[in-house]
Design a protein around this nucleic acid. Structure first.
Lengths: 112, 112
DNA sequence: CCAATACATAAGCTATCACTTATATATCCT
DNA sequence: AGGATATATAAGTGATAGCTTATGTATTGG
């Protein structure tokens, strides 16, 4: 079952990752680990405030956490934040795998 | 590796599924199979044109296909359309599983 | 205590989104 | 042919997203 609340959270995660700039920030944190706002701003094509705004959105969605260390604030990924997304994807892959009654065939179809 | 084009497609899929109304249409098609626009409009909270517009967006993103049969147009899910999303999720789950060097522990962390 | 650094927040602007109503197009039926 | 049905497309509208510049807030070091 999927509750209305969970549904909303799923939409949120989709929406949040739907913006390319924001998703790239998330991906950089995933690849490179903990990074400061400054570090993230360098290499981003937008201003520092824009980066901060995206980070705030990611944080609100539970996708990242932050930690102050002196003047710098270090952001890092919260892998659990992807849970709603993972659940959703698993649900539908499982769903179609069952439907095709052949996981192998389904995955091949996906792999095309 | 991930190409720039793939990246854009991934963002598109995220963005497209980020709208609750549109995602519900996709989910209904997934659960109930092929459905006409009329059928989808009934049970949706928006007008028929709104439904058509969402379906056009889903189609453009490769998430559904349509088939005319007389006056009716039947929409159905294209599971392969989820491939970019599945890839993305798999990449990061695998990534963190490796990082934690313990798939079990990671999945439990996710399951919390 | 004050200037510099790191970041967040405020305010405003523009583009885009999701929706509506109105209308066009395609197909069916008599 | 012509009315009815199913859907798409057009045009307009209000809300929101993402960006910018300007400024506020913490923290550091001299």
């Amino acid at each position: 079952m999927t509750t209305a609340a969970q549904n909303q959270i799923q939409s949120e995660v989709f929406r949040i990752l739907g913006d390319p700039t924001r998703r790239k920030l998330f991906e950089r944190l995933a690849r490179e680990g903990e990074l400061t706002v400054s570090a993230l701003t360098v290499g981003s094509k937008v201003s520092q405030p824009a980066v901060s705004q995206h980070l705030a959105a990611l944080k609100l969605a539970g996708l990242v956490s932050d930690r102050r260390e002196g003047r710098a604030i270090h952001y890092s990924v919260k892998p659990e934040g992807l849970k709603p997304l993972v659940n959703w994807v698993e649900h539908y892959t499982q769903f179609w795998a069952d439907k095709f009654d052949n996981l192998e065939a389904f995955l091949n179809k996906m792999d095309n």
